[in-house]
Amino acid sequence: MRLFLILLIGLVSLTACSNDPNDSFIKSTEETHLLLAATSSMSHVLPDVIEAFEEENPYITITVDYGPSGELAQQIQQGAPVDLFISGNQEWMDMLADQSMIVADSRTNFATNQLVFAGTAGEDVSISSLEALQQGTFDKIVLGQPETSPVGTYAKQALQSANLWEPLSDSFLYAKDLAQVVTFIESGKVDAGFVYYSDVIETDRVEMIFPVDSELHNSIEFPAAITTISTNHADSNRFITYLKSDEAATILEEHGFNRE
């Protein structure tokens, strides 16, 4: 009987300490706090997604740190105590995966978006393609830093594919991240810039001029994953699973994203 009790206690201890993301059936009975590092392009939609998730999981609280995907990935690389990471592209998630800094089985794509060329609301602009930018209609075009901001990376890819990156380079103004791009357009400090469709529908101060041909750039996908630094893989995996749910998809679509 004593041996049986020792084995039973040991099994319970191992189960409670498991970091396997597939152990999502293990439900914590204590308050859990998770830190999520997320691309700034999700700053409008994630609060609603998290609120709905926390209503279903009242013992879990999620705090979000928004920023350019590249900077967030580098912070995780340097040991930031992050449980979950949502990137605005695959490149930065790949970097962390190559360094074994995310739980491979937890990685999932849960949303997509559309790159658009947009300007300050109320301006009368009648162009419909990247090629028309060569007409010199815009003196200042803002885009995110291609090195760290995915929306800037996609914009650069599209412009390079259209052979416009060099010809228009004198017109470019670089912003730290997507949020700053939107702010510049809203304020009228620039003539136009590259944002996502989801940004246009979140403000009445920005209008889409034309959608960018999606074949000119990599697919705009939003991957999420659990970091290997996280000490709570089970509850982190609950959130990953929720991102793929019908409830989350409805919220994402309301904010201009598409379900993966």
Rank of each mutant, 00 (worst) to 15 (best):
S69P: 03
A248C: 08
Q145S: 09
L130Y: 04
V49Q: 03
P47A: 05
E51P: 00
A80S: 14
A234S: 13
L133G: 03
E54I: 02
Q90P: 00
K244M: 00
S40R: 07
S187N: 13
S230K: 02
M93F: 02
D213Q: 08
A132R: 06
T29Y: 01
S245K: 00
T203L: 03
A175G: 06
E254P: 00
L14V: 15
E253I: 00
V182N: 06
S40Y: 04
H217R: 04
M95R: 15
K176D: 10
Y196C: 01
D191N: 10
L3S: 11
K27Q: 09
Y196N: 12
S126R: 01
L133F: 06
I185K: 10
A132D: 11
E260N: 05
Q157F: 01
Y242S: 05
A38I: 04
S40L: 05
A192F: 08
N218C: 01
L84P: 02
N19V: 00
R107M: 13
H33D: 11
L14S: 14
E54D: 03
L7M: 14
A121P: 01
N109V: 15
D191E: 09
H217G: 10
E166N: 07
E202V: 01
N218G: 15
L36M: 08
Q145W: 06
F239T: 07
L5T: 10
Y66V: 03
H44P: 02
Y174E: 14
I50S: 06
G188K: 02
N19F: 05
V64C: 05
E247Q: 04
I6L: 15
P58Y: 15
R259W: 01
A192H: 09
V190A: 08
A234L: 01
S40F: 05
P150I: 14
K244W: 00
L11N: 06
S13K: 09
P21W: 12
I26A: 14
T231A: 09
E186T: 08
E253L: 00
L3I: 14
Y197N: 12
G119N: 08
Y196M: 13
P58H: 13
G119D: 03
L8I: 09
E202G: 03
F4T: 09
A111E: 07
